[in-house]
Design a binder for these strands. Structure first.
Length: 715
DNA sequence: AAAAAAT
């Protein structure tokens, strides 16, 4: 059942018609036709780069002008104030590059013609190779030979003109001196590369105009000597499927929307080409920016940093993880990666930023904070990556994200290069992609480390009161409880340095309690949840990773994205009520080609997940306990009569439900004959290749709590 | 009846 391709084009089109955002011309909504990704529509639309408005209007969409608050782009409107302070940097200069002023009444400006400034944007002229981003006519090519230039400040009179030594005399493409200690620190960890041949089977589909061919080896594309050196040090052997496709796409300066799971190697898929580009092109204007004028160090602004690349991630731990990867690939380069996220001392983060920041990894809230403090300017951010975009929207980050991307000084789409990664492609993400991406390529990657192959999934019936003792039995692994025997063929490995066990619970309280219990029972364990201090969280993760505490009790905070090798066993002490969450949780094991075991405790409290769980097990070709099967059957019948839980109302009366909540994916089993009637789980999940996962299920947009009215908890 | 995220 895996890698199902869409075989129900009608249903699919129906759904897409329902969300018809992009096809005023009817292209997207026709029946009987294949889904046309948004970027393939409106082919005739003028490629007026950055012309967000016209594009939006073409779509029959009334939107607030995207850069409403970014007077900078149409030039000359900035008054050179930053956060209420005078900003010497822009004094009398191009002006247009002034910082965002959404508190200064610029909101009334409308960029009337959508022209991002034309000649005045000569500020964009790049010494590097950015000009070959052909679709934009913005770059005033001064050629690569300049050794210096007049500083921006001087152009419009008003002072400050001075010759600036061109820092690009440093060749960013050449490696800097090696540093043994650092090298050891960065690369001594285990190989996180994914080198297994079976990954070749992972289906990948790329759509979009002029999509560059994929690569088979890291050597098929020139990423420069720094990157190649670091790839070697990381012991990356060959690219994963997502890397094979994403690397050439990003290298050829195209925007990208990629649907891929974590664990597919996607962090490197964007870090490698982005950093490679930065190395070849040098810092561009970013280093010319105020930083070196000395003026930013004055009374008001202390060294505002202008990262060339920004990566946004939903959770702090994930941000850290991406940052750690970035440090590897930035080794022996002039690029300095930084990370900012909440819960940690902001002063320390600011000091770190002040030491230089070319690539910034951030969680949205803290970044906005940094921007408002005038510590970060996105004026020169040429590369924007949104990682786990669906997750970020789930968590309600959309306002912050739009604030960062649209309402500030970030270059508009078409100028910057934007890459979005998401496990799913629901309506909200499609809208975001439409707003943030220009002429993008859509990449759909089948699930790597698919549950069916790598992870053995067990579901056992355990009453609430028995859970603890049951858990102890599992951890000891010497005795397999009789109830489990029928399902557990191999005993789980005992937790140990190379055999980590991750125990998921549903509540923070529960996490504390269970950790206490295990601790009292003499187990080396720790816990992670959102109420623990950031320091404790990181410490816990470290203890776990290093194997000092081979048992980690966790809430949903650890369910997604975290890449911890050697997790041999995931135990759902409490099952989640959402199948999506389940999939993410068990995905913490069986990574990088290893085998994993996932054991879930099930009792009547979990009836809401019965059907979806069953479907997942079937799809992943796992043994299904007979009681689960009959339960699912019962549940379906029982609930169809008296209105099922909102979330799993699948199968019946689709459209009527779609505004209410949950069930979105459910009614559209896009699998032709088999109307599973409640199968929301296919979305973004394992078995189902691309089509079904990404295009369809979320058509009704009901799957995400932020989209509809009520979620499972009634919030 | 929850978790996450800026303070």
């Amino acid at each position: 059942m895996s890698h199902v391709v869409v075989d129900n084009p009608h249903g699919l089109d129906q759904q897409l018609a329902a969300l018809d955002l992009n096809s005023p011309d009817g292209q997207g909504g026709g029946t009987g036709r294949r889904y046309i990704p948004p970027h393939l529509r409106n082919k005739d639309a003028p490629k007026n780069a950055g012309n967000a408005y016209s594009a939006a209007r073409q779509c029959g969409y009334t939107v607030a002008p995207v850069n409403l608050y970014s007077p900078g782009w149409d030039g000359g409107r900035s008054n050179g104030f930053v956060n209420g302070y005078h900003d010497n940097r822009t004094n009398g200069g191009f002006g247009g590059r002034g910082p965002p002023r959404n508190d200064r009444g610029f909101g009334n400006y409308e960029n009337k013609d959508g022209n991002w400034g034309g000649p005045r944007d000569a500020a964009y002229s790049s010494f590097g190779g950015r000009n070959d981003r052909a679709k934009t006519g913005f770059y005033n090519d001064r050629g690569a030979g300049s050794r210096g230039r007049y500083e921006r400040g001087g152009f419009a009179g008003g002072g400050n003109t001075r010759w600036v030594e061109d820092v690009r005399e440093e060749d960013w493409s050449k490696p800097t001196a090696p540093n043994e200690r650092l090298e050891h620190e960065l690369f001594s960890g285990s190989n996180t590369g994914i080198n297994f041949e079976k990954y070749d089977d992972i289906p990948v589909e790329a759509t979009g105009s002029n999509c560059p061919p994929h690569i088979e080896s890291f050597h098929d594309v020139d990423m420069g000597e720094i990157i190649m050196g670091n790839i070697n040090l990381s012991r990356y052997d060959r690219p994963t499927p997502v890397q094979k496709h994403a690397i050439p796409i990003i290298k050829s300066k195209r925007d990208l929307m990629a649907c891929a799971q974590t664990g597919s190697g996607k962090t490197a898929a964007f870090l490698l080409p982005v950093l490679s580009q930065i190395y070849t092109e040098g810092p561009g204007d970013a280093l010319q920016a105020p930083k070196n004028t000395g003026q930013e160090n004055g009374r008001y602004g202390r060294r505002k940093q202008y990262p060339i690349s920004l990566v946004l991630a939903p959770t702090r731990e994930l941000a850290l993880q991406i940052y750690d990867e970035a440090r590897k690939f930035a080794y022996r380069s002039r690029v300095r990666p930084c990370v900012v996220y909440g819960g940690a001392d902001i002063g320390q983060q600011i000091r770190d930023l002040e030491r230089g920041c070319h690539l910034l990894v951030a969680t949205p809230g803290r970044l906005v904070d940094m921007m408002e403090r005038g510590k970060i300017g996105l004026d020169y951010c040429n590369y924007l990556v949104l990682d786990e975009a669906d997750r970020m929207l789930d968590m309600g980050f959309e306002p912050q994200i739009r604030r960062i991307v649209e309402q500030d000084t970030m270059p508009p789409k078409g100028i910057r290069q934007t890459m979005m990664f998401s496990a799913t492609f629901p309506k909200e993400i499609q809208i975001l992609a439409r707003d943030f991406l220009e002429d993008y390529i859509f990449l759909a990657v089948g699930r790597v480390g698919s549950t069916s192959e790598n992870i053995t999934q067990k579901v056992v019936w355990v009453e609430e009161t028995d859970k603890r003792s049951f858990l102890l039995d599992l951890l000891n692994a010497t005795v397999i409880p009789s109830e489990v025997q029928e399902n557990v063929t191999e005993a789980p490995e005992k937790p140990g340095k190379d055999s980590l066990t991750l125990v998921f619970v549903e509540t923070k309280k529960g996490a504390d309690a269970l950790e206490d219990f295990l601790y009292r029972e003499g187990y080396a364990c720790t816990s992670i949840h959102g109420d623990r201090s950031q320091r404790d969280r990181e410490e816990a993760l470290h203890q776990f990773r290093s194997g000092r505490c081979p048992i980690l009790v966790a809430t949903a905070v650890a369910a997604r994205g975290l890449d911890i090798c050697n997790v041999k066993h995931v135990i759902n002490f409490d099952l989640p009520s959402d199948i999506e969450e389940y999939v993410h949780r068990i995905g913490r094991t069986g990574r990088v080609g290893n085998l994993g075991l996932a054991t879930s405790f099930f009792n009547d409290k979990n009836s809401n997940i019965t059907k979806d769980l069953l479907d997942i097990l079937v799809e992943a070709k796992q043994e299904v306990p007979s009681w689960l099967e009959s339960l699912a059957y019962e549940h379906q019948h029982k609930s169809s009569s008296r209105g099922r839980s909102k979330r799993f109302s699948g199968g019946f009366g689709a459209r009527d439900y779609r505004q209410t909540s949950g069930g979105g994916g459910s009614f559209n089993s896009n699998r032709g004959g088999r109307n599973t009637g409640g199968h929301g789980g296919n979305r973004g999940f394992g078995g189902g290749g691309f089509g079904g996962n990404f295009y369809s299920n979320d058509g009704y947009g009901g799957n995400y709590s932020h989209s509809g009215s009520v979620d499972w908890w009634g919030n």
